[in-house]
Design a protein around this nucleic acid. Structure first.
Length: 728
DNA sequence: CGTGGTTTACATTAG
DNA sequence: GTAAACCACG
């Protein structure tokens, strides 16, 4: 396909700074890739002189692959990656200048919170007032803004002062243990570059072009980093869309777009407003929703792909019904010759994926989940990684604490406390403290044997590390540590799943290709495990439905999109309701969601949803109500429709009902057969009494129907025998 | 003192 | 629904 005039302008722009305001589906990635190809091919700029940064590993991978395809060459060493990934690369190269150990390890948010919890306890603070999570968010927020503890103003109030104190302690411990958290990767890189003129000028003469994707999502420190990298003769191209800014919660500043125009003046600005992705109705809906936000840069997307299908809205009885409905639609499409991987289910929060997964499993629909519980963050995997970390570095107290008694080996809280206290007293690491305690025989006999056993285990595993390759080491570690036996003995299917995952880890090690030849493979692997969530578990080529959160869907597109859980308090999420900014960010998220769809979009919501173990009644999301009625068709699976779906005693009827357009009612669809009642109908059973129909399965007289009876029981009944009477 | 079973608090989004 | 916190037992 040809590039349009604006796209060409962006691709072939002369030297200088460039801001591309690119709406959803306007060919942003393509422009970025074409631009890079143009620079290399036509301007004969070396790949080593390009620096391209994005936000997700997925996006980075895509840019690299598309570029390699366009230029027909491999570009392994080119600086294309996420901010965190590139910062990591920088620090691995310049660890000395950055005042880090060569062995530094990455601390993920879980590790970070554990560490803070320990510090909070050590300082004997009220743990109800100082929650690890909140403290972590304070520290991360500071780092996002480039603030070190010493930059912060103390003496305001006890709470703030304590937070700053915690930050100081935390930072000290990270430095002692060679640990670097996500925020630190960025901040440390920035500071190193800032304080080292030599390094700076090295990179100024190296990188001739900086390209930044999703510019609206950059936070202060990322922006500052880019500014530092942009030398006097460097061209910066920033590509972004203020309407797709969805990361304010982690410090992203939409204002950076305006700042860019000022700080980098003169900047030529190009707008890409033609959408090549979605049909008109979908685009109109997206435009209508986003127009409710104030202070937009202003941009109206248009398309010439034709009106397309209506947007469908399905009011599900509950989340099970919603999942079943989606599953039906997914396979219907495949029955008509479509592919699973052209379809995606998008949701607001990861917790929603479970029910969907179950429904897909039942319907034998292949699927692939992105994000959520990351592979490398699973309990059993984390444990295994911690063994590897301790093998790599005995200074790593975080790893030490985590596995000293996992699997249980007779080292309890008391013993660990003794180790801790010696470490604190002598200013040494837990590992060293353990060794001293053993040597001094300062521990009770049983504990001493146990700790000695642990120390010897790690040392012996380390011996293997020298002579074995990574997968063999991983195998030995999970076997000899007892992790396989321990997790395998967990009850139910869980045990087996955990063992499978541990085996999967060995496979991941086997498939691991280190980027950096001169550093230790183990170290590289551990770093990658922290930075890259490990999404390569499933076969990427398999034809599977894609499941992911709205956040991770950004930058992607699908022929058919199912946007589920469109309920107030879920989407927009209740946590975001207390501020205008929060709500507007949710709306941008809705905009992102809608604009992922190329041809077909179904939005669904559940009138009842079991969340956190409680049944909650959902009202249709305000974002759906912001879509003009004439773009939406309400889907009814039942032939009989005039039934209140919530039980009468619960009062308020969901807003979706009031929203009903008269002509929707004539639109009938029969996924299920006509039994005189449908999902949500009230029925009477001779023995069990009255209840509400939850779902159907099968067809003909063999059809099974699931009914929730008023006594609280839920039963599957065979239609043929149940003799259910619809209640009018 | 350490372990296993049981209760209770707690819940976005992500590198 | 999960993981930390708690408590009784060996």
């Amino acid at each position: 396909m040809q590039l349009n005039p604006q796209q060409i302008k962006a691709v072939k722009a002369a030297k200088g700074h460039l801001l591309v305001i690119a709406g959803a589906g306007s060919g942003k990635t393509r422009v970025l890739v074409e631009r890079m190809a143009y620079l290399m091919r036509d301007k004969e700029i070396s790949p080593a002189a390009l620096f391209a940064v994005t936000f997700t590993n997925k996006a980075a991978r895509e840019i690299r692959e598309r570029l390699e395809q366009t230029l027909d060459r491999t570009l392994n060493t080119m600086w294309v990656g996420t901010f965190h990934g590139l910062a990591h690369r920088f620090l691995r190269t310049h660890w000395r200048d950055a005042d880090l150990s060569e062995q530094f390890m990455i601390l993920d948010s879980d590790d970070q919170q554990r560490m803070l919890k320990r510090i909070i306890n050590e300082l004997q603070l009220d743990d109800a007032k100082f929650k690890p999570r909140a403290v972590a968010s304070f520290i991360n927020g500071c780092k996002d803004e480039g603030q070190r503890p010493q930059n912060l103003q103390t003496g305001q109030d006890y709470y703030t002062d304590t937070l700053i104190n915690l930050y100081t302690h935390y930072e000290q411990q990270c430095q002692d243990q060679n640990l670097v958290d996500f925020g630190e990767l960025l901040l440390r890189t920035f500071e190193t570059l800032k304080e080292n003129a030599e390094l700076r000028s090295h990179y100024h003469s190296r990188f001739r072009n900086l390209l930044i994707d999703e510019f609206q999502d950059t936070n202060s420190i990322q922006y500052a980093w880019i500014r530092l990298l942009a030398g006097p003769d460097v061209s910066v191209m920033a590509v972004g869309d203020d309407d797709q800014s969805i990361y304010a919660w982690r410090g992203a500043k939409i204002e950076n777009i305006h700042r860019f125009e000022r700080d980098f003046a003169p900047v030529s600005t190009i707008r890409l407003e033609q959408n090549y992705r979605s049909t008109d109705k979908i685009l109109k809906a997206a435009n209508a929703v986003i127009s409710n936000n104030a202070d937009r840069l202003g941009k109206e997307l248009w398309t010439d792909l034709g009106a397309g299908e209506s947007i469908y809205l399905y009011a599900a009885y509950n989340e099970q019904d919603e999942a079943r409905f989606v599953a039906n639609r997914l396979s219907q499409y495949v029955d008509q010759g479509g592919l699973y991987n052209e379809q995606a289910i998008l949701y607001r929060s990861n917790a929603q994926s479970r029910v969907l997964e179950e429904a897909l499993l039942r319907a034998a629909i292949p699927y692939r989940i992105y994000g959520g519980q990351r592979f490398y963050e699973r309990l059993e995997i984390k444990n295994a990684l911690m063994y590897l970390r301790l093998i790599q570095s005995r200074l790593d107290d975080t790893a030490f604490e985590r596995i000293i008694n996992v699997p249980p080996r007779g080292i309890g809280e008391r013993t660990v406390e003794q180790i801790r206290s010696l470490a604190r007293q002598d200013g040494i690491r837990l590992w060293e403290a353990s060794n001293r305690l053993i040597a001094q025989s300062a521990l009770p006999g049983r504990a001493k044997t146990a700790v000695k056993g642990f120390v010897e285990l790690i040392d012996s595993l380390d011996q293997h590390a020298v002579e074995m390759d990574l997968p063999a080491l991983a195998r030995i570690v999970i076997d000899q540590s007892g992790l396989v036996a321990y997790h395998g003995s967990e009850k139910g299917e869980r045990g087996q799943a955990r063992v499978d995952n541990l085996n999967e880890l060995v496979s991941a090690c086997r498939g691991f290709e280190p980027e950096n030849e001169d550093s230790s493979v183990l170290l590289e692997f551990l770093s990658q495990a922290s930075l890259d969530a490990g999404e390569q578990q499933a076969d990427p080529d398999a034809d599977a439905v894609q499941l992911m959160t709205l956040h991770s869907a950004k930058g992607l597109e699908f022929k058919r999109v199912f946007l589920v859980g469109a309920e107030e308090e879920l989407f927009p999420h209740r946590m975001s309701l207390d501020s205008v900014g929060g709500l507007e960010e949710e709306r941008r998220l809705a905009y992102v969601g809608i604009t992922r769809a190329m041809e077909y979009l179904t939005i669904s919501y559940a009138e009842t949803r079991r969340l956190n173990g409680r049944d909650q009644f959902g009202l249709l999301s305000r974002f759906v109500k912001e879509i003009p009625n004439d773009l939406i068709e309400e889907v009814r699976l039942e032939t009989q429709i005039n039934r209140p779906l919530s039980s009468p005693s619960l009062g308020a009827r969901p807003l979706g009902r009031q929203h009903k357009h008269p002509r929707f009612q004539s639109w009938e669809h029969s996924d299920s057969e006509d039994f005189g009642f449908g999902i949500g109908s009230r029925v009477d059973h001779g023995t069990f009494g009255e209840g509400t129909v939850l779902s159907f399965e099968g067809s003909g007289p063999q059809t099974k129907v699931q009914v929730s009876f008023d006594d609280g029981s839920v039963k599957w009944l065979v239609m043929q025998y149940a003799k259910l009477v619809p209640l009018g």
